[in-house]
């Protein structure tokens, strides 16, 4: 089986700033990887390069056996999107659809033939609706299925997005600070749900984490990043507090008060 993610000599440069510089990175199918590091370390950029949201001008990016690049076909692109599940802050729910319909969006790519045509009128097969309701109920939102997405709280929205991800059944999950807007109880729930989605064999989970206490929950392999580079990459058991501290302290020493703010991340998918 080919690697889930394979990067070679990848560089992302904006202006004269190197946002990301990864000479080599391999992630095998089924691995659970967490990326830690201070702000501006390139964690999100790395995730976006793998999620095909940001194009690397230099180097080779291979995801799930397909190489990303300007020449790829629309059908390939769609297949890859279907297999890559994104949980990111910039990707919203559709505000006017109900929570259940938002969850069902995750299953759209699975529909074929007449079912796909019927989905245009938001008419879904019965078993999918049951699956969506079960996914919502598992996250404690069983009674919110008919609520419009724009009437849900921030935590509830994140959970609906997670249920949508569950319906998508991706082989590669990319989560960018999935719990940043949640209270401690919801944080645990979302982490457990995320792991449950990644439970099936061969599914790979790649998470950017700020809350270091969540590391044991989410990952078995930790990558420490700073200044666009991977500083270290080792199993969870070998990560020591001093290693983590060094990662953040070095950054703290570097930061000058006049550090330019990071440009707001813009997520934009080219139409297939």
């Amino acid at each position: 089986m080919s690697a889930a993610v394979c990067l070679k000599d990848v560089q992302v440069v904006v202006g004269n700033r190197v946002l990301l510089d990864v000479p080599r990175l391999d992630i095998e199918p089924g691995e659970r990887v967490a990326i830690v590091g201070p702000n501006g370390a390139g964690k999100s950029t790395l995730l976006k390069v793998i999620g095909a949201l940001v194009e690397a001008r230099q180097g080779r990016v291979e995801v799930l056996g397909r190489s990303l690049g300007p020449g790829d076909e629309a059908a390939d692109r769609r297949a890859l999107r279907r297999d890559t599940g994104l949980l990111m802050q910039g990707l919203h729910l559709v505000p006017r659809l109900s929570a259940r319909e938002n969850v069902l969006i995750g299953a759209l790519a699975r529909l074929r033939g007449a079912q796909a045509l019927r989905s245009w009128c938001r008419w879904y097969p019965q078993d999918l609706v049951a699956e969506a309701d079960a996914a919502l109920a598992a996250l404690g939102l069983g009674d919110r299925g008919d609520t419009r997405a724009d009437r849900l709280s921030g935590g509830e929205r994140q959970k609906v997005a997670l249920a949508r991800l569950q319906m998508q059944r991706p082989r590669l999950l990319l989560a960018d600070e999935p719990t940043s807007a949640l209270d401690p109880a919801a944080t645990r729930e979302v982490c457990h749900a995320l792991c449950a989605v990644a439970e099936a064999p061969g599914r790979t989970l790649l998470t950017v984490v700020h809350d270091l206490e969540l590391l044991p929950l989410l990952a078995t392999r930790i990558m420490g990043m700073a200044e666009g580079r991977v500083r270290w990459d080792r199993p969870l058991g070998e990560v020591t507090p001093s290693l983590l501290q060094a990662l953040y302290e070095r950054h703290a020493a570097d930061v000058t008060p006049a550090a330019p703010p990071e440009p707001a991340p813009v997520i934009r998918l080219a139409s297939a």
Binding site: R82, L108, Q168
Partner: peptide
């Protein structure tokens, strides 16, 4: 339109018509 929501639908691998009718 909230293009981020449209992109989220597209990111699930939905086809263009599905993106239109859902996003």
């Amino acid at each position: 339109l909230d293009m981020a929501a449209v992109d989220a639908v597209r990111a699930t691998g939905a086809g263009e018509a599905q993106v239109f009718f859902h996003g």
